[in-house]
Design a protein around this nucleic acid. Structure first.
Length: 531
RNA sequence: GGGCCGUUAACUCAGUCGGUAGAGUAUCUGCCUUUUAAGCAGAGAGUCGCUGGUUCGAGUCCAGCACGGCCCA
């Protein structure tokens, strides 16, 4: 029975009620709903006439004055959630919200009838209702529907958050996104923009002759990036599988297969920390173009981002969190070493001395493992000293080969690769390179990586020999790029946190008494708990 | 993993020197037919995140834990 579970689940966790708590206010609502039901009012009917959208009505009649509206004989039927209710004795105003906006209605006893008004009085803020009537303007000039009738569409059993401040607690907003969407207009706006950006990315690539594909999210060998993967198990095959950390190696198999332009826009999974710019599952666009170089991709990226910014922002110049950003091409270019010297203020002569770099890192509080690749010292310093300062779009090039296992060596200087990373507002937003297509070099690099792996869970424990085999069949020279879609959306929606652009960001689940399932040892796997 | 901050009514928040819980919204009752954060009068609503400790007495002080936020690694 409910009363039993109530006892179990009333545990309050940081202001969060877990499950079926029965506060007085909810009891009252349920009681009210029962009374309506007893009177023969359906609480959750399904025979609702298709309503008109308030936005469409406003678009047509928004400019009509009171006199002009009197000439309009049509009635309008809308449906939506009661967001505010201002009752008088025998009449009331309510704002009705649908996905296109909201419209005020006026309900009076004289017009809808005594019995109907009695039922209307039982409606609450949060209920979804349907209304039909003619348009008029109130004394305060608000476009309003004078209801001929009102009908309950869906009864709301819980009160909405406070009407003026809405729901502010970030934890509540992420956990109960449905409530956040009901209360905070700008949330839906952000996700509409996200949809538009995704759509534009897709149409940019398809219209440029790229084939959209879907490659495995469950992989038996991880690859394509350095990151700790999630592990799952396939019962029928009796094997562990990894959720992909990148689609790269499959997309390049498709280059081998003759797909000269391919892209995939989908989710990656990385079993790492959660932060203001990291969610365990995130959306990435990867594209590969045969007979192109990383330099061609710079041009594409500039063009693509400028196009999207023009559409979303109306300009290639805008502000992000108070920072002026200018995406007008061409963007700055700097080699990794140049950036360390010019932006990071590291003396040039130190850059080729591991000991000096190590000391500098130690002074910054970073202990490096001796076994780390030399290039790691540079990128670590870069992360600390340079990256946060790259506000304007900047391509950083010449990444060391030892930390770029899939990238083509530079023809003049084989210790660096033909690669760039793109930074905007102090964040990495894209990573691209001319692809390594020499199977001999690729095999060697994979094998060295695995041999030097130690217990580093970010490095794949196994060489993907099938990928090497594919290269042996022959992959045309090509360049490929990955774009962090969530971060791009953050930039263009002025969102400070990745959680603001992901509808349901990952949070620790709540259970009875606020303890966490993650603490249940039977559910912990490969845990980070050991010190 | 570390540091700082937060957790009080459904929501947004107060809570003084440690003295036994407050406001607004929402809800309920009454009045009110042009309001829009409607208004007026009244009422109900709390395991002060959890567990311990100090104390005659803890929302308040101390410790641990949980969840979250921000920063750092």
């Amino acid at each position: 029975m409910a009363s039993v579970s109530i006892h179990f689940f009333t545990a309050s966790t940081g202001g969060l009620q877990v499950l079926s708590e029965e506060s007085q206010i909810i009891k009252q609502r349920k009681q009210k709903a029962l009374e309506l039901e007893k009177q023969g009012i359906e609480l959750f009917p399904n025979d609702i006439r298709k309503p008109e959208r308030t936005g469409a009505i406003r678009k047509v009649y928004g400019d009509y004055d009171a006199g002009a509206l009197e000439e309009v004989e049509d009635t309008f039927c809308i449906a939506g959630r009661i967001m505010a209710l201002r009752r008088f004795g025998k009449a009331a105003f309510a704002s009705i919200k649908d996905s296109s906006g909201s419209l005020q209605i006026h309900v009076s006893r004289d017009r809808i009838g005594k019995d109907a008004y009695k039922i209307f009085k039982k409606f609450d803020i949060g209920d979804i209702i349907q209304v039909e009537g003619r348009l008029f303007r109130t004394r305060t000039n608000e476009l309003t529907i004078e209801a001929d009738w009102v009908r309950l569409v869906t009864k709301s059993m819980r009160p909405l958050p406070e009407k003026y401040h809405g729901i502010k607690d970030k934890e509540l907003r992420y956990r109960r996104r449905y409530e956040d969407l009901v209360m905070n207009e700008e949330v839906l706006e952000t996700f509409r923009t996200r949809a538009r950006i995704v759509q534009m990315l897709r149409s940019y690539f398809t219209s440029n002759g790229f084939l959209e594909v879907e490659t495995p999210m469950m992989q038996s060998i991880v690859g394509g990036a350095t990151a700790r993967p999630f592990v799952t198990h396939h019962n029928a095959l009796g094997i562990d599988l990894f959720l992909r950390i990148a689609p790269e190696l499959y997309l390049k198999r498709l280059l081998v297969g003759g797909c000269e332009r391919v892209f995939e826009l989908n989710r990656n999974f990385r079993n790492e920390g959660i932060s203001i710019q990291h969610n365990p599952e995130f959306t990435m666009l990867e594209f590969y173009e045969a007979y192109a170089t990383y330099e061609d991709l710079m041009v594409r990226t500039e063009e693509l981002f400028a196009q999207i910014a023009m559409d979303v922002k109306g300009s290639t110049r805008f502000t992000y969190q108070g920072m002026e950003v200018d995406l007008t091409p061409p963007w700055h270019k700097m080699t990794l070493k140049e950036s360390l010297v010019e932006v990071g203020k590291v003396p040039e002569e130190e850059l080729s001395h591991r000991k000096a770099l190590q000391k500098r890192l130690a002074d910054l509080g970073v202990e490096m493992d001796e076994r780390e690749a030399a290039g790691k010292y540079l990128t670590k310093l870069f992360d600390l000293l340079v990256e946060p300062n790259l506000i304007q779009p900047t391509f950083i090039t010449e990444y060391p080969t030892d930390i770029s296992p899939l990238a083509r060596r530079n023809a003049q200087n084989p210790v660096v690769t033909d690669r760039f990373e793109l930074f905007i507002t102090g964040r990495e937003i894209a990573n691209a390179f001319s692809e390594l297509n020499d199977p001999r070099d690729q095999k060697k690099r994979f094998e060295e990586q695995v041999a030097n792996r130690g217990d580093d869970e970010e490095i794949p424990p196994e060489v993907d020999y099938d990928y090497v085999r594919a290269l042996e069949i022959g992959m045309p020279p090509a360049a490929g790029e990955g774009i962090g879609v969530d971060r791009l959306v953050m930039l263009l929606t002025d969102s400070p946190s990745i959680r603001d652009v992901i509808l349901f960001p990952q949070l620790r689940p709540l259970t009875a008494h606020g303890s966490s399932t993650a603490r249940d040892p039977s559910r912990t796997k490969g845990g980070k708990t050991e010190k």
